[in-house]
């Protein structure tokens, strides 16, 4: 029997071979391209290109309120050597650094309580409660703090009722940190809760069975295994506080200005796009350095030694 007659017989009897479908859909290269190209184009046009353009604009000039292509370093020297920028940079780093330390100090014990003291149900509820503020109306919540802290606000009204004169709650470093912690604490706690929930509990129980005190367990078992999460929490808090516009605007009335405030002011006053871009690019470089530092800290000393070898 020849091969051809086998085929005829087989297809007649068993219909084993399908009607040929559109081969295009089956081609291995087409589907990923169809899926990937829109994503790539979208992110390229609406995310990557603007950032690249931002870098380019730092070398352009403004003439008669019009932005013109050029290649000058004037914008960079003017901004980097201006005392306004330098002061704002130092101030912003100080503020963001303070927020980072505060967020870690407050979030760590609170996350510890959620991860190790609450039962599963309460923990899920706490997590849900922390996720909501991450995605809802930061600006409104800062406005609410303004109401609470203002000279005629809720706290001063209560204080006044017991004879304490109006306290200058709004407009200082404290109110700024209240605002920035409103932004950073939920995220900081979420990162730490998830990291702690992932710790192998048998390790902790083993340490406790060996007679370790709680404090020693935290120092020798929990902290080392949380190293990457703590680094992530710190970098995230810093990143959010460093780039925030709303808290400085509403909690301190932009005085002294942070870099974000400076950007918006520079854009508003006389369309100084190139100079605003210089500030923006400087901030991005700064954030990249912080992220790099976070990565370095996350790896830990032992891992670094290993990598160096």
């Amino acid at each position: 029997m020849t091969a051809a007659s086998v085929t005829t017989r087989a297809s007649a009897r068993w219909r084993w071979f399908r009607m040929p479908g559109p081969r295009l859909a089956g081609s291995p290269k087409v589907l990923p391209a169809v899926l990937g190209l829109p994503v790539l184009l979208w992110q390229a046009v609406f995310f990557a290109a603007p950032l690249v353009f931002l870098v380019i604009v730092t070398f352009w000039q403004v003439k008669a309120f019009r932005l013109e292509p050029a290649f000058v370093l004037d914008n960079w020297t003017r901004i980097l050597f201006s005392t306004t920028f330098q002061r704002a940079l130092v101030h912003t780093i100080a503020v963001a650094g303070t927020t980072t330390v505060l967020a870690l100090l407050i979030a760590f014990p609170a996350a510890y309580t959620i991860a190790f003291r609450l039962n599963a149900r309460a923990r899920d509820l706490a997590v849900a409660f922390l996720i909501v503020p991450v995605f809802s109306s930061y600006m409104l919540r800062i406005y609410a703090w303004q109401i609470v802290l203002s000279p005629e606000g809720i706290i001063n009204a209560l204080a006044g009722a017991v004879g304490i004169g109006p306290l200058p709650l709004l407009g200082g470093a404290v109110s700024l940190q209240v605002g920035l912690l409103t932004l950073t604490l939920p995220i900081a706690m979420l990162i730490l809760v998830f990291a702690m929930a992932g710790i192998d509990r048998t390790l902790i129980e083993a340490a406790e069975n060996l007679g370790c005190r709680r404090a020693r367990v935290i120092a020798h078992v929990i902290l080392p295994s949380l190293r990457p999460a703590i680094a992530l929490t710190a970098t995230t808090s810093f990143l959010l506080a460093f780039g925030d516009y709303i808290s400085p605007l509403f909690m301190t009335g932009s005085k002294p200005p942070t870099l974000s405030i400076l950007i918006v002011d520079t854009v508003k006053s006389g369309s100084q796009w190139p100079r605003a871009s210089v500030i923006g690019v400087s901030m991005l470089v700064m954030l990249a350095l912080v992220l790099g530092l976070g990565q370095w800290l996350a790896r830990g000393r032992a891992a670094r030694k290993e990598a160096a070898r």
């Binding site: 091969a3 086998v6 085929t7 087989a10 084993w16 399908r18 479908g21 089956g26």
Partner: peptide, 17 residues
């Protein structure tokens, strides 16, 4: 691979039955 005499070269999984 030949099934029923036909080469399966280049025939995608979903057309083989």
């Amino acid at each position: 691979i030949r099934i029923g005499g036909d080469s399966m070269r280049g025939v995608p999984a979903f057309q083989r039955n």
